[in-house]
Design a protein around this nucleic acid. Structure first.
Length: 772
DNA sequence: CTAGGGTTAG
């Protein structure tokens, strides 16, 4: 093989890779504009080295700061490759080891452009004949994502050995081509090249990256046989592999058996524990490591921060933050993001935002995401949208996590207008078919009261997964489309997608809404029988709802009595709703007492009972409930301004309800709602993503406040009272919860009649199950 | 020529 062989490759000196000399500095011309400061620094390093080796004989060596390309195009030197004087210097002074070192640097930093330049240099100087240099080239291309070029060099090598093969295998693994890696391993064995401990290290990590448990175990057996177990790096690979498989006992055995544990061993084990959700144990190991005088690095801190975040050890998280600063690694993106995540999960979103600001331009998309998600988690929905807006303004590329989190914020508001705006960004970024984003879209449109768009988002996904199905089935169930919900469930089974516990909750609830008791029961039974899913309290509660709502109160009571655990308020509440609907006072009294045992401050129980007494003509009992409620309830949740409002209204209207001055009620409520409306209007206005799109006009008074519902409940207005319900607000007056989804009813007056039940609405309340 | 890390959806 001669150097002309190389010249036929895509990277010839005169071909695609244009090397230019400018001020005696060699650049790769077509990549120059893309040079980051890091790469410029690498070029400078090369220059310094040349200067050193030529002992300054190239007098006019200087680097020109032209990271942006500058007036580079004007240089006459563009096609003037390697000026003679420089080439002489380079040829005389660049030895193999230097090139190998530089190529290694390019590999670790992933600087393909500079690597290509060195490649050209090796051809020009002829040192690519050296097999160490060639191996370094293979490695460089493989690490820079150009595995094909690596393979081309490998195929042209006159003498391959285990090291060059390892480079190839490693290249395949790091490019996610696992089957190619294994095939190459087998091929090298055929060629009688004996794999060494490096080979096994690489392959073990490849197994960990896939789910090749069987192969991993075989490799483990081989490293034992080959006596590689004394080598920390090899055992570290195996340890990491078992951690990734979730086989934490195996990982622990390997870890305990290690004669010498380095920082990688500890980090691998701690992170294995983290993924097993053994957070406390992971943190204990972290402390133990520190006791053994091993200094954590950025990897170790990241995982320790994640553990602290998961168990919400706020103080420990802060201490870790301080340690990270002390170790001088605060500017590393991964650690910074882990710190943001820690503050987000420890309910200190302000700390998260502060860290994001500290990171400035270094912050990655994940860093921004972590802040947004933290704000959403802590109910700072408007702030979350604000951060998203800022992210767009700063031209940070959004990913599926960003959209999921932002859409979640929209669904909590809920605001259809903002949801639509985010959706437009989703489409623009081509994320519409991403399953995470699609699921979020379905959920958000459903919460914003737009079932058609939820449906559209669903049918745009070509291969919906379990979450997507769940979101859509949940939406159908919530919207009172049991037939559609059941249809989709069957489709899901047809497609061999295993339903989850949520799926069953949604379909049983759908059955409950359309009175299909038998079918609901069948779903409930098949859940455990056919899918091995154990019912949770939610499912039991849903079943009680199914039975009670259809009037099978005896069966419901029997069902409750057979429950494996002591029935909680969540079980008795739907039962009470059923009693209320079917007017069975004695059972209602039982349910009420059970609920109050668990939750003595639940005002809705008193209201319900009081209403039932009124209906039954037991006015004194009704008043007794009122008095009880007045003395006991609504004292919880200190600092909540809504409760103060509630209390005021309560005081205002306490006494004999039959003499309520209706216009005053109207006026008071109107004022109250106007205030809320203004708040939400301002909120929506400030968080508008694209101000040029227009003002918020359509849905300025969307809101979602359970506490408002409590206000209504406390009022307990008499028959015939008219309340003007603002657009899109629906509140169940029986259980006092706001309907989570917003109806399309606009500016319609609701007449409170027939004991607060609104039969002319077809949808049921998601909490108490009452049809309105 | 080898080993370790962060954020989602019902």
């Amino acid at each position: 093989m001669s150097s002309s062989t190389f010249c036929s490759m895509p990277f010839t000196v005169n071909g695609n890779l244009k090397l230019v000399q400018w001020g005696n500095v060699i650049y790769s011309s077509n990549k120059l504009a893309a040079y980051q400061p890091l790469k410029l620094a690498a070029a400078r390093k090369l220059l310094d080295e040349i200067a050193k080796r030529t002992r300054g004989s190239v007098a006019d060596l200087q680097i020109t700061e032209c990271a942006d390309g500058g007036n580079f195009g004007n240089s006459n030197a563009i096609d003037d490759l390697f000026g003679e004087s420089v080439m002489d210097c380079v040829c005389n002074h660049m030895d193999e080891q230097y090139i190998i070192d530089q190529l290694r640097y390019c590999s670790s930093e992933g600087i393909l452009e500079l690597g290509e330049l060195y490649h050209a240099l090796t051809i020009k100087t002829g040192i690519w004949f050296n097999k160490f240099v060639a191996t370094a080239l293979v490695n460089m291309y493989a690490k820079c994502g150009q595995i094909d070029n690596g393979k081309m060099i490998f195929d042209r090598m006159s003498c391959i050995d285990v090291a060059s093969c390892n480079s190839m295998i490693c290249g395949y693994v790091s490019n996610g081509m696992l089957s190619e890696a294994f095939a190459f391993f087998i091929e090298m064995c055929y060629l009688d090249i004996v794999p060494n401990h490096y080979t096994y290290s690489i392959l073990l990590s490849a197994c960990g990256a896939s789910t090749a448990v069987k192969e991993g175990k075989q490799l483990h057996a081989q490293i034992v046989k080959l006596k590689f177990m004394a080598l920390t790096a090899v055992v570290n690979s195996a340890l990491t592999m078992y951690s990734k498989f979730g086989m934490i006992e195996e990982a622990e055995n390997l870890f305990q058996g290690l004669a010498e544990r380095n920082i990688i061993s500890w980090t691998a084990f701690i992170s294995g524990l983290y993924h097993q959700k053994a957070f406390n144990k992971a943190l204990a190991q972290f402390c133990l490591m520190r006791k053994n005088n091993l200094e954590p690095n950025e990897y170790t801190f990241s995982v320790a921060l994640s553990c602290a975040a998961s168990v919400q050890y706020h103080d420990y998280g802060r201490a870790l933050h301080a340690q990270v600063i002390k170790h001088g690694i605060i500017s590393m993106v991964f650690v910074g993001t882990a710190i943001i995540d820690m503050y987000s999960k420890c309910a200190e979103p302000s700390g998260a935002r502060k860290q994001l600001e500290e990171m400035g331009g270094m912050a990655s998309c994940a860093s921004w995401n972590a802040v947004i998600i933290g704000l959403v988690r802590n109910d700072e929905v408007a702030a979350a949208l604000e951060v998203f807006h800022k992210m767009l303004n700063n031209d940070i590329a959004c990913d599926e996590y960003t959209f999921s989190a932002t859409l979640k914020a929209c669904s909590l508001l809920p605001s259809l207008a903002i949801c639509r705006q985010v959706h437009s960004r989703v489409v623009k970024g081509k994320f519409g078919t991403n399953l995470h984003v699609a699921s979020s879209l379905i959920e958000t449109y459903a919460q914003c009261g737009n079932s058609e768009d939820a449906e559209k988002a669903f049918y745009l996904t070509s291969t919906p997964d379990v979450v997507t199905f769940n979101a859509m089935i949940g939406a159908y169930s919530q919207y009172g489309y049991p037939t559609k919900a059941k249809f989709l469930f069957e489709k899901m089974v047809e497609k061999r997608i295993l339903p989850t516990s949520f799926t069953f909750l949604a379909v049983i609830s759908a059955c409950s809404h359309c009175g299909s008791v038998q079918q609901g029961r069948e779903f409930f039974e098949s859940m455990t029988r056919n899918y091995g899913i154990l019912p949770e309290e939610k499912h039991y509660s849903c079943m009680v709802d199914l039975l009670s709502r259809s009037g099978q109160l005896e069966n419901a009571l029997e069902f409750i009595n057979k429950l494996p655990n002591e029935p909680s308020a969540a079980i008795w509440r739907p039962f009470l709703a059923g009693c209320r609907y079917h007017g069975t006072l004695e059972m209602a009294e039982l349910a009420a007492s059970k609920i109050l045992e668990h939750e003595p401050g639940d005002a809705s129980v008193y209201v319900t009972l009081s209403n039932m007494y009124v209906e039954a003509g037991k006015l004194s009992d009704a008043l007794k409930q009122r008095a009880l409620m007045k003395s006991k309830s609504m004292q919880k949740e200190p600092g909540c301004s809504w409760l103060e409002v509630n209390a005021k209204i309560h005081r205002f209207f306490s006494g004999d309800r039959r003499h309520i001055d209706t216009p005053k009620v109207y006026y008071k409520l109107e004022n109250l709602m106007q205030k809320i409306q203004t708040d939400y209007y301002n909120l929506a206005k400030t968080s508008l993503l694209n101000p040029e799109v227009g003002q918020v006009t359509e849905e300025k008074c969307l809101f979602h406040s359970e506490r408002l519902a409590v206000c209504f409940g406390l009022l307990n207005l008499p028959k015939g009272t008219t309340i003007r319900v603002f657009k899109n607000i629906r509140i169940c007056l029986d259980c006092h919860t706001t309907m989570k989804h917003i109806s399309k009813i606009t500016n319609r007056d609701i007449i409170i009649r027939d004991n607060y039940r609104f039969h002319h609405f077809k949808q049921g309340c998601c909490s108490c199950g009452d049809f309105w």
